[in-house]
Simulated assay, not measured.
Amino acid sequence: MRVGSIVMGVSDVRRAMEFWGRALGYVPRDEPEATWVVLTSASGAGPNVSLMRSETPVQEKPRVHLDLYTSDQAGEVDRLVGLGASHVDWQDYPPDADFVVLADTEGNRFCVIQHGLPPT
């Protein structure tokens, strides 16, 4: 068994598709619908990210979120903010935090984590 897709609720599927597609280098698997799209890695690596229209309010501290690993945290945070992400005022940062909390264009929280990955 493996993770096939991570599903996130969004209020605007097309706006979220544009953000996550550009953020991750993902493309729609099929023609997007008004209420649903599955994004898949252009390189074929990694799980899909599915975006489903939802009226559920964004959680301030979601129980499930994405952790994005990078070897260039500052550069990626700047790039993602340039794509429309926003910084989240996160009160729970430990003093030696290796993560930055952002919100996507829909308000969904995610973390950008400094990780020793080779640059892609």
Rank of each mutant, 00 (worst) to 15 (best):
M1V: 11
M1C: 10
G4I: 10
S5Q: 14
V7C: 05
V7W: 07
S11N: 13
R14A: 15
R14Q: 14
R14G: 04
R15C: 08
A16M: 04
A16L: 01
M17P: 06
E18L: 12
F19V: 07
W20T: 08
G21K: 04
G21E: 08
R22G: 08
R22L: 10
L24P: 02
L24Q: 07
G25Q: 05
G25S: 03
P28Y: 04
P28V: 04
R29Q: 15
D30L: 10
E31Q: 13
E33A: 14
A34M: 11
W36G: 07
S41D: 09
S41F: 04
A42H: 05
G44S: 09
G46F: 06
P47S: 13
N48A: 15
S50F: 03
L51H: 04
L51I: 02
M52K: 11
R53E: 14
R53L: 12
S54F: 09
S54E: 07
T56D: 14
P57D: 01
P57Q: 04
V58H: 02
K61P: 00
P62I: 05
R63D: 11
V64M: 10
H65S: 12
H65M: 11
H65Q: 13
L66Y: 03
L66S: 06
D67V: 12
L68N: 02
L68W: 11
T70S: 14
T70H: 10
T70R: 07
D72E: 15
G75A: 15
G75S: 12
G75K: 13
E76M: 12
V77N: 03
S86R: 13
S86G: 09
S86W: 00
H87G: 01
H87M: 11
D89C: 01
Q91M: 08
Q91Y: 02
P94C: 10
D98S: 09
V100Y: 00
D104M: 00
D104P: 00
T105A: 01
F110Y: 08
C111S: 13
V112T: 01
V112D: 00
I113Y: 11
I113T: 13
T120S: 13
